[in-house]
Design a protein around this nucleic acid. Structure first.
Length: 548
RNA sequence: CGGGGCGUAGCGCAGUCUGGUUAGCGCACUUGAUUUGGGAUCAAGGGGUCGUGAGUUCGAAUCCCACCGCCCCGACCA
């Protein structure tokens, strides 16, 4: 994008949108706006600078953390640059909407947000300042919310389809926005930062943060082995221990120590070949939030050994086991003594039963979907949209209420729905490019057609023909660019390909001799000679075909 | 927050280790000429607080210290 001159970096994670980039941005906005209008959402515009009082009300002034850019005005009053607008929209709506007769209501805006990311990267994909379409809906019942949620879901599918993206809606965690139900719209791309668990055989799809699998077994096998201590002087990880003992990683258990609310250590047990899912662990009320691993000294103090040799045997604190670990028998774990591990360990016999058993791990490829009918595959994705059922998460603390038919005050049900407008552009380029540059779909391209003259300066014929053609195309409402820069033909052609303009018309004396021009399709790479009088019609048809 | 790297012309870099005349190179830019169906060639020219500040020195882009900015990796999975 930088190379094509769409954006310029001003500061870490902050970009200027140059004229061509802005044209793309506006096209994306147009599609989003049209689909929002179609489902009856009303456009509004909220301020980007927001007073801290509202955020105190919702409780997010403390909760949101460092991503919230906080600023002070000249009177030393606290403000923030809006990372999202639940607080503001609730405030606007609660002043106006008093009766069930005014519900449901959906509003949206397309506006700049700021999130002070720890580490912005991938240009516009994870920037600190970005443009987002955020919509909010208000209801007098869950049924009404569910209906709007479905409408939004449908509108999102339409938007991403119209923009030519290969995407997948997936079940998702609600993160810092909060609420009950939620789907993400993920654009499939290897460079994506999210991992999606999905199945080819069923409609199952979920973000790995949330994805659950069906446990492999239903009950624990009978213990056959007895507890044995083995020396593992240099083997700290499960992988190293398994390798040394020449056994499957599946028979090892790794022990992770976390701080609990009162500061005492809590032991989490995960099978050696699995990974802890921090989102799932983060929901454990036994653990201190945000999640923090115990410090080295604390581990030394409570286990009398260094990390790498920890295990549940002899530990009296809280033990939380992953479902799969709970069903293991004769497993291998640390001996709580430096340089030793234990084999043939069994719950109930060698150590106490876990205090709590739950799903704590990331799903892996080959796991079964929760219904057990199909196998899970993993792929990477870029989150471009997210819809939430907020329910009363904000209405209650911020006292957003209406009078129902009986004149009684009730809290509103809320939904919120976001699309990363700027991120969509990055994601699209990620998905549609080749060695020559970008291949934009018509709906997003900065121009639909580019006109390139051969030897404009020298040839009156070319000059007259191309200018006439340019006017014709404009008159036909085609978004056309006449590239009349005094560059060599090679640069003009190469640039048009780099920019990803879907169609190109080359006008030169050679073909004009037969009254024809060259028509080139960026996506297919096909070139054909077309009569100059028919070209406008052809372009119009091509464009409306692609837009469908 | 931890680790690493970078900061020299509009952009990309060399020079820094080993201090020493006038700080170079490529691209871009300006002027002129020749060129013009796939990123031209020749000639002439302009452009620098060497990130900032303080220090060592006869002398600092170069050595020392502090600060600022940016990029990359990591942030505890034992």
């Amino acid at each position: 994008m930088l190379r094509a001159g769409f954006i310029k970096r001003l500061s870490s994670g902050v970009y200027t949108w140059m004229p061509l980039g802005l044209k793309i941005l506006r096209k994306v906005e147009k599609v989003v706006r049209e689909e929002m209008n179609r489902i009856g959402a009303l456009e509004m515009l909220m301020p980007s600078v927001q007073p801290s009082e509202l955020w105190q009300e919702s409780g997010r002034w403390e909760f949101y953390g460092k991503e919230l850019l906080r600023i002070k005005d000249r009177h030393e009053r606290d403000f923030c640059y809006g990372p999202t607008h639940e607080e503001v929209v609730v405030d606007a709506v609660r002043r106006d909407i008093k009766s069930y007769k005014q519900l449901p209501l959906s509003v949206f805006q397309i506006q700049t947000k700021f999130r002070d990311e720890v580490r912005p990267r991938f240009g516009v994909m994870r920037s600190r300042e970005f443009i987002m379409k955020d919509a909010y809906s208000f209801h007098d019942s869950y049924e009404s919310l569910a209906k709007t949620y479905d409408d939004m879901y449908g509108a999102y599918c339409k938007i991403f389809t119209r923009l030519g993206l290969k995407f997948r809606p997936v079940a998702a965690d609600t993160g810092s926005i909060g609420g009950t139900g939620s789907h993400e719209f993920q654009v499939l791309a290897d460079s994506g930062e999210d991992i999606i668990a999905y199945s080819d055989e069923s409609s199952y799809a979920a973000n790995i943060e949330l994805a659950e699998s069906k446990p492999e077994k239903v009950s624990r096998d009978i213990a056959k082995m007895s507890l044995t201590k083995v020396a593992t002087p240099n083997e700290k990880t499960c992988f190293e221990v398994a390798q040394m003992l020449n056994i499957d990683l599946k028979h090892t258990v790794k022990s992770l120590v976390f701080e609990s609310v009162d500061g005492s250590p809590v032991l989490l047990l995960i099978r050696g070949d699995h990974e802890l899912n921090e989102i799932k662990a983060g929901k454990l009320k036994e653990l201190k939030q945000p999640l923090s691993f115990s410090k080295l000294e604390d581990i030394q103090a409570s286990f009398n050994c260094s990390p790498g040799f920890i295990g549940p045997v002899g530990f009296n604190g809280v033990i939380i086991a992953d479902r799969d670990v709970n069903l293991m028998s004769d497993f291998i774990c640390g001996a709580n003594q430096d340089g030793y591990h234990l084999t043939g360990v069994n719950f109930g016999k060698d150590c106490k039963e876990p205090d709590l058993v739950m799903d704590l791990r990331n799903v892996v490829e080959g796991d079964y979907t929760p219904d057990g009918n199909s196998q899970i595959k993993l792929c990477r994705g870029i989150e471009v949209g997210h819809v939430f059922q907020l329910r009363t998460k904000y209405s209650i603390p911020m006292n957003l209420s209406y009078l129902d038919q009986n004149g009684k005050s009730q809290f509103m049900e809320m939904g919120c729905y976001g699309i990363g407008v700027t991120r969509i552009i990055g994601a699209s380029i990620e998905q549609n490019n080749d060695e020559k540059g970008i291949v934009f779909p018509v709906a997003m391209a900065p121009f639909e057609v580019v006109l390139i003259p051969v030897n404009l300066a020298k040839s009156e014929l070319v000059k007259n023909s191309i200018e006439r053609l340019y006017s014709t195309l404009l008159a036909d409402n085609i978004d056309v660019l006449l590239d009349d820069r005094n560059e060599r033909i090679g640069s003009l052609l190469a640039d048009s390909e780099l920019l990803g303009i879907p169609y190109r018309i080359v006008v030169g004396e050679k073909s004009l001799a037969e009254n024809k021009v060259e028509f080139y399709n960026r996506k297919t790479g096909e070139t054909q000679l077309i009569d100059i009088n028919q070209i406008s019609e052809l372009v119009k048809n091509q464009i409306s075909n692609e837009k469908k």
